[in-house]
Amino acid sequence: MNVFRLTGDLSHLAAIIILLLKIWKSRSCAGISGKSQILFALVFTTRYLDLLTSFISLYNTSMKIIYVGCAYATVYLIYAKFRATYDGNHDTFRVEFLVVPVGGLAFLVNHDFSPLEILWTFSIYLESVAILPQLFMISKTGEAETITTHYLFCLGVYRALYLFNWIWRFYFEGFFDMIAIVAGVVQTILYCDFFYLYITKVLKGKKLSLPA
């Protein structure tokens, strides 16, 4: 555990909680892509199946349970409790265009051809692109609530911090996992455009709105 890894995890946790609180407090999931949230629930489910097979640490186990639990709670709020506020007309990204190629890739490029390992690989690849329905929705509506941008910022920064964690681990522990690194780079790149808008607009007190 190093400082980048820990702050990355905390940033990830902050993102998840910001989103849950935003929906809960406003009693609305307007502007949130339910499809991205379903993909994240799928990511956590397929990645953390090792909860059933191995114990790494109390930290590891509790964070996994919190991530999975919050992911399903978010999906429940969007598709059940506050379904009336869900903006399905703007959430039109075709997720099969992500899930099918990512599934195929997980079968072809993995560390070990075993069910758990393929599912873990699938989750890594899927996470890297799972935010696309959300970014697509924002590009369609041309705007995002400020609280939603805070969520996206924390979620994007988390994987960027993991990149520094992997550099650290490579130098000090000789550890590297090419699948996670490549997917992590892709994931971070997808946020770059958003980071630019966040820094130049939201941090200066303006609402995030895209030119028509």
């Binding site: 890894r5 991530y67 560390h111 070990d112 964690n165 996992d177 996670a180």
Partner: peptide, 10 residues
């Protein structure tokens, strides 16, 4: 043989 990476990360 098992060449999987330990999954200590989240």
């Amino acid at each position: 043989e098992d060449d999987t990476v330990p999954k200590d990360e989240l």
